[in-house]
């Protein structure tokens, strides 16, 4: 590897996760940096394309003593899913007939989204943090949905007659974050809701937002949504990075009044 010219600023790497100080072969990427990138890209692509192991995820959910119903969006396969976001937001016919009313405070939807790794790695430990905090809410069955987008939760929540729906979904994978899980809360779910009607908690994974912090934020938002009877842009997340509710004096926009 003597042809590789190293950069004398390698120690700056501790300051950023960016791929700095890679060195060069001529003016090009050295082999190691090139193959490193290729592997990370392969992981991110596999997260998108490898089908969710729904049986394993269902077993995890049942392990938490949750009822599970299977659902599928109107996108029959991954290629269609990627090109037709509208189909990923609708149930297919058999799922629509299978979902029976089951009035509850909160319905959970677990959907593959854009990263099967995100769901397989994070749903179990996240629910272990969240479920014990959900004392005041009656839970409906968990819909385990394939080829799903966020808005699929609106149709599922409405079919179950849930007051609120939480969608746990695999986020668009980054090169260094192939297994990032997102959470979307929608009060009074029904078809026609938009992103402005939801609250989102992003990047739930051990290297991102911790399971406990995400669970605390979720419960905060859920309680606020129930109090206000709405969710979305008008419902502000007043918790800190650990999901703890900030004291009034620590919130500059409030302490001014």
């Amino acid at each position: 590897m003597s042809e590789v010219i190293k950069n004398p600023w390698t120690e700056l790497r501790r300051l950023t996760a960016a791929r700095i100080a890679l060195g060069r072969a001529g003016a090009s990427l050295p082999t190691a940096a090139h193959l490193d990138f290729q592997f990370d890209h392969a992981r991110a692509r596999d997260a998108v394309h490898r089908p969710l192991d729904a049986d394993a995820v269902e077993a995890v959910l049942r392990g938490h003593t949750l009822d599970v119903v299977r659902a599928h969006s109107a996108a029959p396969d991954r290629a269609t899913y990627l090109q037709r976001p509208d189909l990923g937001r609708r149930l297919d016919d058999s799922s629509r007939t299978a979902l029976r009313p089951n009035p509850c405070d909160l319905a959970l939807v677990v959907a593959d989204g854009l990263s099967s790794f995100a769901i397989e790695n994070n749903v179990g430990p996240f629910l272990a943090s969240l479920l014990p905090m959900l004392g005041g809410f009656s839970l409906g069955p968990v819909a385990l949905a394939l080829q799903g987008r966020v808005a699929l939760g609106d149709e599922i929540g409405a079919a179950l007659q849930a007051k609120a729906v939480i969608v746990l979904i695999g986020e668009r994978p980054g090169l260094s974050s192939p297994d990032s899980m997102g959470l979307y809360l929608t009060w009074a779910p029904q078809k026609g809701r938009t992103d402005a009607d939801r609250n989102c908690i992003s990047n739930i994974r051990p290297e991102g937002l911790s399971f406990d912090a995400a669970a605390r934020k979720t419960v905060y938002l859920l309680n606020e949504a129930r109090r206000l009877a709405y969710s979305g842009v008008r419902l502000k997340d007043e918790t800190d990075a650990d999901g703890l509710t900030l004291a009034r004096e620590a919130r500059p926009e409030l302490s001014a009044t």
Partner: peptide, 25 residues
Amino acid sequence: GIPGSDDIMLNYQTTSFHDALYARR
């Protein structure tokens, strides 16, 4: 031009500093 083609904020891949040098040469 971005370090190693990897935008760690926007989560997408664009051309790197090295890529520009390739095009120059």
